[in-house]
Protein backbone atom coordinates (compact mmCIF):
# COMPACT_ATOMS: atom_id res chain seq x y z
CA UNK A 1 0.00 0.00 0.00
CA UNK A 2 1.68 3.20 -1.08
CA UNK A 3 -0.99 5.66 0.10
CA UNK A 4 0.54 8.46 2.13
CA UNK A 5 -1.30 10.42 4.76
CA UNK A 6 -1.14 12.65 7.81
CA UNK A 7 -0.31 10.70 10.97
CA UNK A 8 -0.30 13.81 13.16
CA UNK A 9 0.07 17.55 13.09
CA UNK A 10 0.93 20.35 15.47
CA UNK A 11 0.70 24.12 15.48
CA UNK A 12 2.53 26.73 17.52
CA UNK A 13 1.69 30.42 17.64
CA UNK A 14 3.38 32.90 19.99
CA UNK A 15 1.06 34.37 22.59
CA UNK A 16 1.89 38.03 21.95
CA UNK A 17 -0.37 40.13 19.68
CA UNK A 18 -0.25 43.65 18.38
CA UNK A 19 -3.35 45.30 17.00
CA UNK A 20 -3.26 46.84 13.54
CA UNK A 21 -4.61 50.00 15.17
CA UNK A 22 -1.54 50.23 17.42
CA UNK A 23 0.80 50.05 14.43
CA UNK A 24 -1.40 52.54 12.54
CA UNK A 25 -1.21 54.95 15.49
CA UNK A 26 2.59 55.08 15.29
CA UNK A 27 2.64 55.73 11.54
CA UNK A 28 -0.30 58.10 11.38
CA UNK A 29 -2.47 55.72 9.37
CA UNK A 30 -6.22 55.22 9.75
CA UNK A 31 -6.97 51.98 11.57
CA UNK A 32 -10.27 51.43 9.79
CA UNK A 33 -8.73 51.67 6.35
CA UNK A 34 -5.92 49.23 7.25
CA UNK A 35 -8.29 46.67 8.78
CA UNK A 36 -10.64 46.84 5.81
CA UNK A 37 -7.84 46.91 3.24
CA UNK A 38 -5.94 43.93 4.63
CA UNK A 39 -8.80 41.98 6.16
CA UNK A 40 -6.97 41.54 9.47
CA UNK A 41 -7.10 43.35 12.77
CA UNK A 42 -4.12 41.96 14.69
CA UNK A 43 -1.03 39.81 14.28
CA UNK A 44 1.10 37.47 16.38
CA UNK A 45 4.49 38.60 17.63
CA UNK A 46 7.20 36.23 18.82
CA UNK A 47 8.59 36.50 22.34
CA UNK A 48 12.17 37.73 22.79
CA UNK A 49 13.37 34.15 23.03
CA UNK A 50 11.27 32.73 20.19
CA UNK A 51 12.34 32.23 16.60
CA UNK A 52 11.45 29.93 13.71
CA UNK A 53 13.36 27.07 15.37
CA UNK A 54 11.61 27.30 18.77
CA UNK A 55 8.17 27.56 17.14
CA UNK A 56 9.03 24.62 14.89
CA UNK A 57 10.09 22.53 17.90
CA UNK A 58 6.87 23.32 19.73
CA UNK A 59 4.79 22.41 16.67
CA UNK A 60 6.85 19.27 16.01
CA UNK A 61 6.47 18.02 19.59
CA UNK A 62 2.71 18.47 19.33
CA UNK A 63 2.68 16.58 16.02
CA UNK A 64 4.64 13.66 17.50
CA UNK A 65 2.35 13.54 20.49
CA UNK A 66 -0.72 13.70 18.20
CA UNK A 67 0.58 10.79 16.10
CA UNK A 68 1.61 8.83 19.19
CA UNK A 69 4.69 7.37 17.53
CA UNK A 70 8.28 6.99 18.69
CA UNK A 71 10.05 10.12 17.35
CA UNK A 72 13.03 7.98 16.53
CA UNK A 73 10.95 6.43 13.71
CA UNK A 74 10.92 9.79 11.90
CA UNK A 75 13.45 9.45 9.12
CA UNK A 76 13.24 12.79 7.37
CA UNK A 77 12.91 16.36 8.61
CA UNK A 78 12.30 19.28 6.27
CA UNK A 79 11.74 22.81 7.53
CA UNK A 80 10.64 25.61 5.28
CA UNK A 81 11.11 29.20 6.42
CA UNK A 82 12.13 32.61 5.19
CA UNK A 83 13.37 33.45 8.72
CA UNK A 84 15.65 30.53 9.54
CA UNK A 85 17.66 31.65 12.60
CA UNK A 86 20.88 31.04 10.70
CA UNK A 87 21.69 31.89 7.08
CA UNK A 88 24.01 28.89 7.19
CA UNK A 89 23.33 26.08 9.69
CA UNK A 90 20.15 24.09 9.42
CA UNK A 91 17.04 24.58 11.50
CA UNK A 92 16.06 20.99 10.71
CA UNK A 93 18.83 19.51 12.86
CA UNK A 94 17.80 21.68 15.83
CA UNK A 95 14.25 20.41 15.59
CA UNK A 96 15.28 16.81 14.97
CA UNK A 97 17.50 16.90 18.07
CA UNK A 98 14.77 18.50 20.17
CA UNK A 99 12.18 15.84 19.35
CA UNK A 100 14.61 12.95 19.73
CA UNK A 101 14.78 11.94 16.06
CA UNK A 102 18.57 12.10 15.63
CA UNK A 103 20.88 10.79 14.31
CA UNK A 104 19.51 8.35 11.74
CA UNK A 105 17.47 10.66 9.54
CA UNK A 106 17.63 12.91 6.51
CA UNK A 107 17.39 16.60 7.49
CA UNK A 108 17.33 19.74 5.35
CA UNK A 109 16.01 23.29 5.26
CA UNK A 110 13.92 24.86 2.51
CA UNK A 111 13.40 28.42 1.39
CA UNK A 112 10.70 29.39 -1.10
CA UNK A 113 9.11 32.48 0.46
CA UNK A 114 5.71 31.48 1.84
CA UNK A 115 5.55 28.04 0.27
CA UNK A 116 8.73 26.60 1.79
CA UNK A 117 6.54 24.78 4.33
CA UNK A 118 4.45 22.94 1.72
CA UNK A 119 7.68 22.25 -0.21
CA UNK A 120 8.83 20.34 2.88
CA UNK A 121 5.55 18.44 3.06
CA UNK A 122 5.74 17.51 -0.65
CA UNK A 123 9.24 16.14 -0.26
CA UNK A 124 8.26 14.19 2.83
CA UNK A 125 5.35 12.78 0.84
CA UNK A 126 7.72 11.81 -1.99
CA UNK A 127 10.16 9.97 0.29
CA UNK A 128 7.36 7.96 1.89
CA UNK A 129 5.60 7.35 -1.40
CA UNK A 130 8.81 5.97 -2.87
CA UNK A 131 9.00 3.46 -0.03
CA UNK A 132 12.31 4.84 1.23
CA UNK A 133 10.99 5.78 4.69
CA UNK A 134 7.89 5.14 6.82
CA UNK A 135 7.59 8.45 8.66
CA UNK A 136 8.79 11.96 7.86
CA UNK A 137 8.05 15.48 9.01
CA UNK A 138 7.47 18.66 7.03
CA UNK A 139 7.33 21.97 8.90
CA UNK A 140 6.60 25.55 7.93
CA UNK A 141 7.84 28.07 10.51
CA UNK A 142 8.38 31.79 10.34
CA UNK A 143 8.89 34.92 12.42
CA UNK A 144 8.90 37.27 9.47
CA UNK A 145 9.70 40.96 9.58
CA UNK A 146 8.01 43.78 7.69
CA UNK A 147 9.82 47.05 7.20
CA UNK A 148 8.55 49.52 9.85
CA UNK A 149 5.78 51.60 8.36
CA UNK A 150 5.40 49.35 5.30
CA UNK A 151 2.07 47.66 4.57
CA UNK A 152 3.75 44.35 5.39
CA UNK A 153 4.34 45.45 8.97
CA UNK A 154 0.60 45.07 9.67
CA UNK A 155 0.56 41.46 8.51
CA UNK A 156 3.99 39.85 9.11
CA UNK A 157 3.21 37.41 11.93
CA UNK A 158 4.82 34.40 13.54
CA UNK A 159 3.86 30.74 13.78
CA UNK A 160 4.69 27.18 12.85
CA UNK A 161 2.87 24.07 11.69
CA UNK A 162 4.33 20.58 11.59
CA UNK A 163 2.90 17.69 9.59
CA UNK A 164 4.01 14.19 10.39
CA UNK A 165 3.33 11.99 7.38
CA UNK A 166 3.22 8.22 7.25
CA UNK A 167 1.34 5.27 5.81
CA UNK A 168 -0.20 3.72 8.91
CA UNK A 169 -3.04 4.99 11.11
CA UNK A 170 -3.41 8.27 9.28
CA UNK A 171 -6.16 10.77 10.05
CA UNK A 172 -6.24 11.97 6.45
CA UNK A 173 -4.88 10.70 3.15
CA UNK A 174 -3.00 12.81 0.65
CA UNK A 175 -4.69 11.61 -2.54
CA UNK A 176 -2.74 13.81 -4.93
CA UNK A 177 -0.25 16.65 -5.28
CA UNK A 178 0.39 19.23 -7.97
CA UNK A 179 2.84 22.10 -8.25
CA UNK A 180 3.06 25.20 -10.39
CA UNK A 181 6.07 27.54 -10.68
CA UNK A 182 7.38 30.43 -12.78
CA UNK A 183 10.08 33.09 -12.39
CA UNK A 184 8.11 36.06 -11.07
CA UNK A 185 9.81 38.84 -9.06
CA UNK A 186 6.89 39.87 -6.83
CA UNK A 187 8.70 39.77 -3.47
CA UNK A 188 12.26 39.08 -2.37
CA UNK A 189 14.89 39.61 0.27
CA UNK A 190 18.56 39.80 -0.65
CA UNK A 191 21.30 38.20 1.45
CA UNK A 192 22.04 40.38 4.56
CA UNK A 193 18.90 42.49 4.07
CA UNK A 194 16.78 42.68 7.22
CA UNK A 195 13.47 43.46 5.53
CA UNK A 196 11.98 42.11 2.32
CA UNK A 197 11.18 44.21 -0.74
CA UNK A 198 8.04 43.74 -2.81
CA UNK A 199 6.36 44.93 -5.96
CA UNK A 200 3.34 46.52 -4.29
CA UNK A 201 0.24 45.88 -6.42
CA UNK A 202 2.36 43.70 -8.71
CA UNK A 203 2.27 41.05 -5.96
CA UNK A 204 -1.44 40.52 -6.76
CA UNK A 205 -2.45 39.39 -10.24
CA UNK A 206 0.94 38.23 -11.67
CA UNK A 207 2.04 36.86 -8.32
CA UNK A 208 -0.46 35.47 -5.83
CA UNK A 209 -3.55 35.08 -8.03
CA UNK A 210 -1.89 33.59 -11.12
CA UNK A 211 -0.03 30.96 -9.11
CA UNK A 212 -2.71 30.00 -6.60
CA UNK A 213 -5.21 29.65 -9.41
CA UNK A 214 -2.63 27.68 -11.40
CA UNK A 215 -2.06 25.32 -8.47
CA UNK A 216 -5.71 24.90 -7.54
CA UNK A 217 -6.91 24.37 -11.12
CA UNK A 218 -4.02 21.97 -11.72
CA UNK A 219 -4.86 19.70 -8.79
CA UNK A 220 -8.58 19.69 -9.67
CA UNK A 221 -7.78 18.80 -13.26
CA UNK A 222 -5.42 16.04 -12.10
CA UNK A 223 -7.99 14.63 -9.67
CA UNK A 224 -10.98 15.25 -11.96
CA UNK A 225 -12.75 17.31 -9.30
CA UNK A 226 -14.77 20.50 -9.10
CA UNK A 227 -14.94 23.07 -6.25
CA UNK A 228 -18.25 21.59 -5.05
CA UNK A 229 -16.51 18.23 -4.43
CA UNK A 230 -14.58 19.75 -1.51
CA UNK A 231 -15.81 20.26 2.02
CA UNK A 232 -13.00 22.74 2.61
CA UNK A 233 -10.46 24.75 0.69
CA UNK A 234 -7.32 26.29 2.16
CA UNK A 235 -5.37 28.92 0.27
CA UNK A 236 -2.24 30.77 1.20
CA UNK A 237 -3.33 33.77 3.23
CA UNK A 238 -0.93 36.74 3.20
CA UNK A 239 -3.84 38.82 4.50
CA UNK A 240 -7.56 38.29 4.99
CA UNK A 241 -8.46 39.60 1.58
CA UNK A 242 -6.50 37.64 -1.06
CA UNK A 243 -7.70 34.13 -0.08
CA UNK A 244 -11.34 35.27 -0.09
CA UNK A 245 -10.88 36.86 -3.51
CA UNK A 246 -9.13 33.84 -5.00
CA UNK A 247 -11.81 31.53 -3.58
CA UNK A 248 -14.47 33.58 -5.34
CA UNK A 249 -12.52 33.53 -8.61
CA UNK A 250 -12.18 29.73 -8.40
CA UNK A 251 -15.80 29.17 -7.42
CA UNK A 252 -15.45 28.24 -3.74
CA UNK A 253 -17.92 29.46 -1.14
CA UNK A 254 -17.32 31.25 2.13
CA UNK A 255 -18.43 28.07 3.98
CA UNK A 256 -15.61 26.15 2.29
CA UNK A 257 -12.82 28.61 3.08
CA UNK A 258 -13.69 30.41 6.33
CA UNK A 259 -12.81 27.46 8.65
CA UNK A 260 -9.24 27.49 7.29
CA UNK A 261 -8.80 31.26 7.31
CA UNK A 262 -6.59 32.06 10.32
CA UNK A 263 -4.54 35.03 9.10
CA UNK A 264 -7.19 37.57 10.17
CA UNK A 265 -6.40 36.60 13.79
CA UNK A 266 -2.63 36.10 13.74
CA UNK A 267 -1.34 37.78 10.59
CA UNK A 268 0.57 36.14 7.79
CA UNK A 269 2.71 33.37 9.21
CA UNK A 270 4.44 32.94 5.84
CA UNK A 271 5.70 29.35 5.44
CA UNK A 272 3.28 28.26 8.16
CA UNK A 273 0.21 30.12 6.91
CA UNK A 274 -1.29 27.53 4.53
CA UNK A 275 -0.38 24.67 6.88
CA UNK A 276 -1.97 26.35 9.91
CA UNK A 277 -5.10 26.82 7.79
CA UNK A 278 -5.02 23.12 6.93
CA UNK A 279 -4.57 22.21 10.61
CA UNK A 280 -7.61 24.32 11.52
CA UNK A 281 -9.67 22.50 8.87
CA UNK A 282 -8.49 19.08 10.08
CA UNK A 283 -9.52 20.08 13.62
CA UNK A 284 -13.09 20.24 12.27
CA UNK A 285 -13.16 17.75 9.37
CA UNK A 286 -15.37 14.65 9.37
CA UNK A 287 -14.43 11.27 7.89
CA UNK A 288 -14.59 11.41 4.09
CA UNK A 289 -14.35 15.21 3.84
CA UNK A 290 -12.22 16.29 0.88
CA UNK A 291 -9.89 19.27 1.35
CA UNK A 292 -8.22 21.29 -1.37
CA UNK A 293 -5.00 23.06 -0.37
CA UNK A 294 -3.04 25.54 -2.50
CA UNK A 295 -0.07 27.37 -1.05
CA UNK A 296 1.79 30.28 -2.57
CA UNK A 297 5.39 31.30 -2.45
CA UNK A 298 6.67 34.48 -4.01
CA UNK A 299 9.19 34.15 -6.73
CA UNK A 300 6.83 32.28 -7.48
CA UNK A 301 4.94 29.02 -7.14
CA UNK A 302 2.09 27.09 -5.62
CA UNK A 303 1.90 23.58 -4.15
CA UNK A 304 -1.53 22.03 -4.22
CA UNK A 305 -2.90 18.98 -2.39
CA UNK A 306 -6.03 16.89 -2.51
CA UNK A 307 -6.57 15.51 0.98
CA UNK A 308 -9.34 13.29 2.34
CA UNK A 309 -10.09 12.83 6.03
CA UNK A 310 -10.00 9.17 7.10
CA UNK A 311 -12.27 7.28 9.48
CA UNK A 312 -9.70 7.78 12.24
CA UNK A 313 -10.06 11.54 12.30
CA UNK A 314 -12.92 11.55 14.80
CA UNK A 315 -11.19 9.42 17.40
CA UNK A 316 -7.79 11.08 17.01
CA UNK A 317 -8.54 14.76 17.56
CA UNK A 318 -5.61 17.07 18.20
CA UNK A 319 -5.11 18.09 21.82
CA UNK A 320 -4.12 21.60 20.69
CA UNK A 321 -6.72 22.78 18.16
CA UNK A 322 -5.76 25.92 16.23
CA UNK A 323 -8.71 27.98 17.34
CA UNK A 324 -7.86 27.33 20.97
CA UNK A 325 -4.18 28.15 20.45
CA UNK A 326 -5.03 31.52 18.91
CA UNK A 327 -7.20 32.40 21.90
CA UNK A 328 -4.15 32.30 24.19
CA UNK A 329 -3.02 35.86 23.64
CA UNK A 330 -1.78 38.99 25.32
CA UNK A 331 -1.57 42.41 23.67
CA UNK A 332 1.60 44.46 23.56
CA UNK A 333 2.19 48.05 22.53
CA UNK A 334 4.40 49.20 19.68
CA UNK A 335 7.37 49.85 22.00
CA UNK A 336 7.30 46.30 23.38
CA UNK A 337 6.76 44.98 19.85
CA UNK A 338 9.83 46.93 18.67
CA UNK A 339 11.83 45.35 21.51
CA UNK A 340 10.52 41.85 20.70
CA UNK A 341 11.40 42.24 17.05
CA UNK A 342 14.85 43.59 17.92
CA UNK A 343 14.19 46.86 16.21
CA UNK A 344 15.94 48.52 19.16
CA UNK A 345 19.72 48.65 19.10
CA UNK A 346 21.23 48.19 22.57
Amino acid sequence: MSCVGIAGYGVSIPSYRIKAGEIARVWGEEEGRIVKGLGLSEKSVPGLDEDAATLAVDAARRAVSHAGIDPYDIKSMFIGSESHPYAVKPTATIVAEAIGATPNLFAADYEFACKAGTAGVINTYALIKSGEIDYGMGIGADTSQGRPGDALEYSAGAGAAAFLLGRKDVIANIEGIYSYATDTPDFWRREHAIYPSHGGRFTGPPGYFKHVIGGAKGIMEKMGTKPRDYAYAVFHQPNGKFPRTVAKKLGFTAEQIEPGLITPYIGNTYSAATLIGLAAVLDAAKPGDAILVASFGSGAGSDAFHIEASDLIDERRNAYPVRRIIENKRYIDYGTYAKHRRKLVL
Partner: peptide
Protein backbone atom coordinates in the same frame (compact mmCIF):
# COMPACT_ATOMS: atom_id res chain seq x y z
CA UNK B 1 2.16 24.29 37.79
CA UNK B 2 4.55 24.73 34.91
CA UNK B 3 5.61 22.79 31.82
CA UNK B 4 8.78 22.79 29.81
CA UNK B 5 9.09 24.83 26.62
CA UNK B 6 11.89 25.07 24.08
CA UNK B 7 13.35 28.55 23.77
CA UNK B 8 16.44 30.55 22.99
CA UNK B 9 18.61 30.64 26.10
Amino acid sequence: KVEMVFRKI
